[in-house]
């Protein structure tokens, strides 16, 4: 289902048989179910529990390489909560920037694909990084290969890897490396 680039090559074998990813996945699915149905009726909860257990047992092998229960949950949740307004602000600023280019009759763009490098180790963190970059208009992740990301930039401001990484990646990374460690 995911693009190939999001798959993690090194599966840790000791986690494969452990129950933790399974429990985490079922809990997440049950939470999604409860939000969707928006009721605490015993029948609804029971159905949700059964369905999420079944789905989790089927999907575990496919999903477990990118998920994993976060260790010190509170600290991570705090950084995640701080990340949401940061991301929203980045999206709004970039949207206004792109909108301004679009309505300008001269269409002022200098597009190109640049290479950047991320310091994030965790695959889930990289998934969030590439998604955040893509969500911010003006930058679009075209290809990933390990630490290196190839980004289509609507207005190439910096040529070198270091400068481009500084402009595109570092802001998101500051939050993501604390969330996903």
């Amino acid at each position: 289902m995911w693009p190939r680039s999001f798959e993690q090559p090194d599966v840790r074998p000791d986690e494969e048989r452990s129950l933790r990813p399974f429990i985490c996945l079922s809990a997440g699915l049950l939470a999604l179910w409860l939000t969707l149905t928006w009721s605490l009726d015993p029948q609804e909860v029971a159905t949700g529990l059964v369905v999420s257990l079944v789905v989790a047992s089927v999907a575990r092998s496919a999903v477990h390489s990118v998920t994993g229960c976060p260790g010190s949950i509170l600290r991570r949740v705090a950084w995640s909560l701080a990340y949401i307004p940061y991301l929203l602000r980045a999206i709004i600023a970039a949207n206004i920037d792109v909108a301004r280019r679009v309505v300008n009759p001269a269409l002022p763009i200098r597009p190109g694909i640049v290479k950047v490098r991320t310091n994030l180790e965790s695959p889930l963190g990289r998934l969030f990084l590439t998604s955040s970059i893509t969500l911010t208009p003006g930058t679009l992740t075209v290809e990933t290969s390990g630490r290196e990301l190839y980004i289509h930039w609507i207005d190439v401001e910096a040529d070198g890897i270091e400068e481009a990484s500084e402009r595109i990646v570092r802001g998101f990374e500051r939050y993501l490396e604390r969330i996903f460690g």
Binding site: N95, L107, P111, P137, L140, H152
Partner: peptide, 17 residues
């Protein structure tokens, strides 16, 4: 926009906001 990638920039993502 002149090419596919720029269209994605403006289109699929400017519309998310």
């Amino acid at each position: 926009m002149p090419d596919l990638y720029n269209r994605m920039q403006a289109g699929t993502k400017a519309t998310t906001l």
